[in-house]
Design a protein around this nucleic acid. Structure first.
Length: 265
DNA sequence: ATGGTTGGACCCCAA
């Protein structure tokens, strides 16, 4: 069974319905994982999304901030929401795709502007959040379960995951403490960074471009904040990876674009 | 060196 899985930080699910329709028509994904849905569960646009051809939808949201969802064409089971780093924030939801293979959708905290946990608690929370993900990953490895983890990790780890390594080294998303922690998470289960499995590390690769640029394509000051990782045993099953960059030019876009994999499960 | 934009709620916050 070949599965096409998309991850997208939509920056409000309710105002992005038309763009989700466009995504479905153009790319025909089987599973869509959303971050920053920005709505509580009572106001989640369930019927609208089901009408796009996804009868099976699970979501965990809150008013105004955060929120995650998974849309699927096929039945899903074992729905779970983790309380990562003891936070009440709705930043994780997972399902079982098929026997023994789980899919975990994470929205890692952005972490504010100042890269100092003393001055900026949001930054400290971000670091603790990735540490908590690592503890979770350690347990997953012990269970030997295969998994896909994806979402907006809000960290661009490699020099060519940002438009200027030098200019962003002290900018939250590309600081040494964040990168060290993300690498620790990656090493904890030898996770495969699917984007870099297919695209050389010397090549620039972004999934996010700030709203605060007159011409995002021309200035091209992007960062690779969105990720899809698999457990090492799933590597041979990976068939394709793509970043749907054109979505940044859609009418009233998210500042993140969808990223997509094809995997034979 | 600074400011630029968006979304959701409310008159500002987080991204």
């Amino acid at each position: 069974m070949s599965l096409r899985i998309v991850s997208w930080n939509v920056n409000s699910v309710r105002i992005r319905i038309a763009l989700l329709r466009k995504l479905v028509e153009q790319s025909q994904p089987d599973v869509i994982c959303l971050q920053e849905t920005k709505t509580n569960d009572d106001s989640f646009p369930l019927a609208d999304l089901q009408s796009l051809g996804f009868p099976y939808i699970v979501f965990s949201g809150q008013k105004s901030y955060n929120g995650v969802a998974i849309l699927s064409k096929q039945p899903i089971s074992r729905v779970n929401c983790l309380k990562v780093a003891n936070s009440e924030d709705k930043r994780h939801i997972s399902v079982e795709l098929k026997d023994g293979i789980s899919l975990h959708n994470f929205y890692v905290p952005a972490g504010g502007d100042i890269p100092d946990p003393e001055q900026n608690p949001a930054y400290g929370f971000k670091l603790r959040f990735v540490e908590a993900m690592t503890e979770w990953s350690d347990e997953l490895k012990k269970s030997k379960e295969n998994a896909i983890i994806l979402g907006d990790f809000n960290i661009a780890p490699l020099p060519h995951d940002v438009w200027s390594h030098k200019q962003l080294i002290n900018v939250v998303s590309h600081t040494e403490p964040e990168i060290t922690r993300l690498n620790k998470l990656k090493d904890s289960y030898n996770w495969c960074d699917v984007a870099r499995h297919f695209v050389d590390s010397e090549q620039k690769l972004y999934s996010w471009w700030s709203y605060r640029n007159r011409d995002w394509r021309k200035s091209d000051r992007g960062r690779r904040l969105d990720h899809i990782w698999t457990t090492p045993d799933l590597k041979p099953a990976l068939k394709n990876f793509s970043i749907l960059k054109d979505a940044r030019d859609w009418t009233s876009p998210s500042d993140h674009v969808p990223i997509m994999i094809d995997i034979d499960l």
